[in-house]
Design a protein around this nucleic acid. Structure first.
Length: 280
DNA sequence: CACACAACCTGTCAGC
DNA sequence: TGCTGACAGGTTGTGT
């Protein structure tokens, strides 16, 4: 689930629960996620007031009153749940529990443990290894056709792979790359270099609109993923190509008896979905 | 430098 | 019903 729209949905759900609140107890129920948790993780969080819940690309940044920042990445299977008091006993994969001074619990659940958390000095945030090479925020003013073109120029990798590269643009994942390329009418097989220029000016608004619509829908709930409030995200119902191999793409007059409809291919080890007729 | 691929770990689902 | 293998939203590290 967690690409930019899903992380943004999480941020918006956590904001009213955490901002301005004090963490009265923080517990790590295991010593590691993808990486070991920092020393004294629970103690360093306990007693601190949360100043803000921010997002950079797919990273949640929870700013604390002592100037440190809790960095949280959801990996493939991470999710947050909010429990009002009294909260039930923790489930198997609820690894991190934050209890606030309103007796609300915020729990991080991550079966695969590809996600991670870290606690660092806010002054060092820009140099943090996982953040320092990120490209522009796709929804920011700094992301436009000129910027994207410059980053695609000369690259022979397929545009699909280039858009997954977080140093090109930060926040897209496997689902929204396929969706954005479909909306822009661009083949995922095309080289990144060949998209620089005119095609990039079609791609940028496609990326922005897809992401905005997904955020408005509360993200996409793939399989068992939910918003922290427990609600399902609805954007999955609006996928044009992702997971729809063999079907006709929206607005396409393909005769499925004669064509194979939406194709599923593998690029750089990841699934790509596209329509060879609507995308060139 | 640019790119492809394996690895990290667990759950789910299709097929037998 | 149970087993096996393939596959899944991401990112890093290694090898070519």
């Amino acid at each position: 689930m967690p690409e930019l729209p899903e992380v943004e949905t999480v941020r918006r759900a956590l904001m009213p629960v955490l901002e301005g609140r004090r963490i009265i107890r923080a517990v790590a129920r295991r010593p590691d996620l993808r990486f070991p948790l920092p020393d004294g993780f629970g103690q360093r969080l306990t007693g601190q007031r949360v100043l803000a819940v921010r997002r950079r690309a797919k990273f949640l940044l929870i700013e604390l009153e002592d100037g440190s920042v809790l960095i949280s990445h959801l990996g493939m299977s991470g999710s947050y749940r909010i429990y009002p008091d009294p909260s039930p006993s923790p489930e198997k994969h609820e690894h991190i529990i934050l209890r606030t001074d309103q007796d609300t619990e915020v729990r991080y659940n991550d079966p695969r443990r590809f996600g991670f958390m870290d606690l660092i000095d806010g002054a060092a945030l820009d140099q943090y290894v996982m953040l320092k090479n990120l490209g522009p925020e796709p929804l920011g003013d700094g992301f436009n056709a000129e910027i994207l073109s410059a980053r695609l120029k000369g690259r022979q990798t397929p545009i699909k792979s280039a858009l997954l590269d977080q140093s090109v643009v930060a926040g897209l994942g496997n689902i929204y790359v396929s969706e954005a390329l479909f909306r822009a009418g661009i083949s995922p097989k095309r080289t990144a270099a060949s998209v620089a220029g005119r095609r990039a000016s079609r791609l940028v608004p496609a990326i922005k609109s897809i992401l905005n619509e997904a955020i408005d829908a509360g993200g996409a709930s793939i399989s068992d993923h939910r918003q922290p409030t427990g609600e399902l995200g609805y954007f999955q119902h609006q996928f044009a190509v992702y997971g729809r191999q063999g079907q006709a793409c929206p607005g396409c007059d393909c005769d499925l008896a004669r064509t194979r409809g939406i194709a599923k291919i593998t690029q750089a080890g990841r699934s790509t979905f596209y329509c060879s007729r609507a995308q060139r």
